[in-house]
Nucleic acid binder design. Structure first.
Length: 678
DNA sequence: CGATGTAGCACC
DNA sequence: AAACGGTGCTACATCG
């Protein structure tokens, strides 16, 4: 028998870089009784008390396993390390992950252990979870009792605004953070040994870890049967990569953030004042988000603005950014409604930026000397450890949370990337695929005009710009007059609208719906564009037909590993939405390329001390390197990474191009690489 | 008071 | 019937 282990941990929450720690660990061999380590949690501090020798014992057991199976390995490894365990580099190669396998086998279905155990093993572990939830909820109520507090003190159960638990939000299912509680209650109140509070968490935990191993073994077999194992082997490598990205984290400058925050707060307050004055006393304040009744009254009754769309759910007229921007384009700038709308839009943007910054401050940690191997502690350099989930979407995109690193604003005037950047002694480089999701269907379908564009970015009149090409189709007179300057001349009008429409089309807008035409501000625009790009239209048709027959689409075939199947969601009538198949196919293929790139990049930078990948924003990777002695001196490494990323194109037979940017100062600012470096 | 849903905004 | 793909976070409204 292979010495294998199904492993699982329970923790006091997800913030393992902050105050959360594991309090229960188990190894299941499939044959003997499971090994369990269960530790007391101090109810006043949430600190976990680990007896001497336990970690060493766990390490021995991990060492003994030639293969390990986890559900979301990255999390459990981080939990163990946060407790003080020394995770050995070569253990990564032994790790299997039922979460990754679950996504590969059924991308569109839930991948939680309960669902998968039922589906693959016909084992229902839900009752154990329900029993635990009930016990924890009871205990959370109990320890908040006045009498209980008088007798046992104020217990630190999970709630929002606890600085050590920045990811604990009001809407979160916080009972999951207090699974240690029933046993702590049993202990403190000296319940009889037969009471379920002693064991309810352990029972739940043991069925969890009990199914992990057989589930993993079965999934491996199915992957092999379906010819998907090579894909899985590549995806497995992401575990170590993401683990290391998260560990290193993302640095920002607190001073810059605070300056920017103060500026936005002031501007938002000013905008609010302007709006209140224009409301003629009808508004006492502006809602911080959404639209109040009073505000709708002002906009639609007093200003007589025309609604452009209505909420699907409530039927109320929308006052969202598309609507505000459309109004702004129509209204005279000096008019009452014009000024109101502009200030409302500006206030909302600044409120959003401020709320993001508050989120960063809540999650941010001061860098300890050990983190950067430097003798200084910089109080202004803060590090975030956003979580990346490679199975977080129905395609192959990652999701990111706590905080989200993938939605950091880069808009003019709201560029929060200005706050982010390298710590002293470091420098950032970002590498992004050029037009990744346009290139894929263009080359796959053989769309000649687009291929020509991508092959010759130096040639006029479009200079590689797809938006300009479409602009010319829609506005030939303007383009004839201004050429590439249309980008500037019609920056916030026709050119911006062309971009908006292009994105709508790229993401699957159907001609019949008129969605793209609205975005383009040109009637019949999508039809005219379609007539020019018939090859992609044909590819879309084929992809829809395939999805209708099979219920999934494939990513483009990787020469070595095959294609990743992506289940296509269905509408309420069980039919394929026509907007989905090509979108998934392209998005999935793009992200398969990124996955390949991350693996190759990691293989390379692993040999370079203190070089890190720190962010992935779908088609962009950000690297954090030691600052070179000569400005730009790291360029050769970056060129190597660029070619490694472009190699993904060879895997699928499409030429890909990667651009790079040098950020010695901050993420918003790209600096020229001095010629001497080249 | 907590849970749930909605609107709105940020990213690609 | 609907027709723009994939996300996360905050504030607000509503309901039990």
């Amino acid at each position: 028998m292979i010495p294998a282990g199904g492993w699982d941990t329970e923790t006091t929450g997800v913030d393992l870089f902050h105050d959360c720690r594991p309090f229960m660990v188990s190894r299941n061999t499939g044959a003997d009784d499971p090994l369990l380590w269960e530790w007391d949690v101090d109810p006043l501090t949430r600190a976990v008390e680990i007896p001497d020798g336990d970690l060493a014992e766990i390490e021995e057991n991990l060492e003994e396993c030639s293969e390990t199976v986890f559900q979301n390995a990255k999390f459990d490894i981080r939990a163990l390390v946060s407790a003080g365990l020394e995770w050995k580099q070569d253990w990564f190669g032994r790790v299997h992950d039922t979460l990754l396998m679950g996504h590969l086998l059924a991308s569109g279905e839930p991948h939680d252990l309960t669902t998968m155990a039922l589906r693959y093993l016909r084992i229902d572990i839900k009752p154990y979870e329900d029993a635990l939830q009930q016990a924890v909820t009871e205990c959370r109520r109990l320890v908040r009792n006045k009498e209980f507090i008088e007798k046992y003190g104020e217990w630190r159960i999970a709630k929002k605004n606890d600085p050590g638990l920045p990811s604990a939000r009001g809407d979160e299912k916080l009972w999951k953070w207090d699974m240690w509680l029933p046993r702590a209650v049993a202990k403190a109140t000296k319940l009889s040994p037969a009471h379920t509070y002693w064991t309810v968490c352990r029972d739940y935990h043991l069925v969890d870890s009990g199914v992990t191993l057989p589930l993993g073994q079965l999934q491996i077999e199915i992957l092999q049967d379906r010819g998907l194992f090579a894909l899985y082997q590549l995806r497995r490598r992401l575990i170590e990569i993401i683990y290391k990205m998260e560990k290193r984290g993302v640095t920002y400058n607190r001073k810059r953030l605070k300056e920017l925050r103060a500026e936005y707060v002031e501007q938002a307050a000013h905008s609010e004042k302007v709006c209140l004055a224009l409301s003629g006393g009808k508004l006492a304040s502006l809602p911080k988000s959404g639209t109040s009744k009073a505000m709708r009254e002002v906009l639609f009754s007093d200003f007589k603005l025309v609604p452009l769309k209505y909420s699907d759910k409530t039927g109320e007229p929308s006052v969202d950014k598309t609507t505000l921007e459309a109004w702004m384009a129509e209204l005279p700038e000096q008019s009452k409604p014009g000024v109101f709308v502009k200030n409302l839009r500006g206030k909302r943007q600044r409120d959003t930026a401020v709320s993001y910054m508050d989120g960063y401050e809540r999650a941010g940690l001061e860098i300890l000397q050990a983190t950067l191997g430097d003798a200084v502690r910089w109080s202004d350099i803060i590090v975030l450890h956003p979580s990346l989930n490679p199975t977080g979407t129905a395609t192959l995109r990652f999701s990111s949370s706590n905080p989200n690193e993938q939605n950091i604003s880069k808009q003019e005037g709201f560029n929060l990337r200005y706050c982010f950047g390298p710590a002293p002694g470091r420098e950032w480089w970002s590498l992004d695929y050029e037009n990744l999701e346009l290139r894929i269907p263009a080359y796959e379908a053989g769309e000649a005009a687009m291929i020509e564009l991508f092959e010759h970015p130096d040639r006029g009149p479009y200079y590689g710009s797809y938006h300009l090409l479409v602009f010319d189709i829609l506005h030939p007179e303007k383009f004839a007059k201004y050429g590439a300057d249309c980008k500037k001349v019609f920056k916030s009008t026709w050119y911006q609208w062309t971009k908006n429409g292009n994105f709508a089309v790229q993401y699957g807008a159907q001609e019949e719906s008129g969605t793209a035409d609205t975005a383009y501000h040109v009637k019949g625009a999508q039809h005219r564009i379609k007539e020019r790009f018939t090859a992609i239209s044909e590819l879309s048709k084929q992809t829809i037909a395939f999805a209708a027959r099979n219920g999934y689409v494939n990513t483009m075939i990787d020469r070595e590993m095959g294609a990743y199947p992506l289940q296509v969601k269905r509408d309420a009538w069980g039919k394929i939405k026509p907007t989905v198949p090509l979108s998934y196919h392209v998005q999935g293929t793009a992200m398969w390329c990124m996955c390949r790139a991350m693996v190759r990049a990691q293989e390379y930078i692993a040999s370079l001390p203190n070089h890190f990948t720190v962010m992935q924003v779908h088609d962009e990777l950000v690297f954090d390197f030691p600052r070179s002695k000569l400005p730009g001196g790291n360029l050769p490494k970056i060129l190597k990474l660029k070619s490694l990323m472009e190699e993904s194109g060879n895997d699928i037979g499409i030429p890909l191009k990667v651009d790079y940017a040098y950020h010695p100062n901050n993420w918003a600012k790209t600096e020229d690489v001095p010629a001497v470096a080249v």
